[in-house]
Design a protein around this nucleic acid. Structure first.
Length: 294
DNA sequence: AGATCTACCTGGTTGC
DNA sequence: TGCAACCAGGTAGATC
């Protein structure tokens, strides 16, 4: 579901359509989609209406819309009372797509669907839709206070495509947990979900249930390279489309055609042709090769 | 510290 | 055909 490569692809697709646009109105169709202190549809609308979008980015699996700084010429659209947290300077919006969240830009002729949770009206007449069939995803305002009042944000680990190999090796020193559980833990390293954890570990020849502190620095250095390769290759293919992932243009990615283990339980290993094994690690379905991964 | 379980939510698939 | 059971998945929170 959207992991790092999918969120990166969506951000790249949205960027040219959102940069320099101003949010004219917001319709929150499912209040439960709002996360954080600005939790009422009214407060959320007040916090983002009238703001101009500077950039679209990503942090881990979060998609970020960053606002231009507010100027004296652009006071808040409304002066409705805000909660103490909401009064804090809002710098942008964070979206967590979880499994089924999607973001699309639509023309004014497109009506919200039954899974459309939030609609942002833009000053060029287009609209940004946040759709999410399963309601696991959320939308949350970013502010200076997020640094201390949003634990998830505050605890996010390093970016896998930016971390140096020596720092990557250090992440696992003295950690007795299973390597796959640590790769999935956003406090250790961000952006990796079930798909890319399994694919990276297969390429590195490491069993998903291996204890991190049992892996030599050389093997961890190799894993660093494979994590980066898998993520970069997927970004180049516009992500993986399984079930309902689509990018900002509604297009499917292609990396799912490159999976070597994910979703291939019982099928032959691409290296040794023995059937791939399935187990549960960190509570997640895990596919690996008992022969090639040690 | 880490493992395991549950909750959250619903569309799609499988089995009877 | 109809319907129940089950699965997928990221994160939080509780418990051992």
């Amino acid at each position: 579901m959207p992991e790092l490569p999918e969120v990166e692809t969506i951000a790249c697709g949205l960027r040219p359509q959102l940069q320099q646009r101003t949010i004219r109105a917001v319709a929150v169709r499912n209040p439960g989609t709002l996360d954080g202190p600005v939790s009422s549809p009214e407060a959320f609308a007040t916090a983002v209406t009238g703001r101009r979008i500077a950039d679209v980015g990503r942090r881990g699996k979060l998609l970020l819309i960053r606002f231009e700084p507010q100027t004296a010429h652009e006071p808040p659209a409304r002066s409705a009372p805000l909660g103490a947290a909401a009064a804090d300077h809002v710098t942008g919006i964070a979206f967590h797509l979880k499994m089924t969240g999607r973001l699309f830009i639509h023309g004014p002729e497109v009506q919200p669907g039954s899974h459309t949770r939030v609609v942002f009206d833009l000053d060029d007449g287009n609209r940004l839709f946040f759709d999410d069939a399963r309601k696991f995803g959320y939308v949350r305002v970013l502010s200076a206070a997020s640094q201390h009042d949003w634990k998830f944000w505050q605890n996010l680990g390093p970016e896998p495509l930016e971390i140096a190999v020596s720092d990557f090796v250090e992440l696992f020193r003295g950690k007795r947990g299973r390597i796959k559980a640590l790769l999935l833990d956003q406090k250790v390293i961000v952006g990796i979900g079930n798909i890319y954890a399994d694919e990276s570990l297969f390429r590195a020849g490491i069993r998903p249930d291996a204890r991190a502190d049992a892996l030599s620095p050389a093997r961890l250095r190799a894993l660093h390279g494979h994590v980066q390769d898998v993520l970069r290759e997927s970004i180049a293919e516009c992500g993986s489309s399984i079930r309902d992932y689509r990018d900002a243009h509604g297009d499917a990615g292609a990396f799912q055609n490159r999976f070597r283990v994910y979703g291939r339980s019982g099928q032959p290993c691409v290296t040794c042709a023995r059937p791939l094994a399935t187990s549960r690690v960190a509570g997640r379905t895990t596919v690996f090769c008992e022969h090639c991964q040690k």
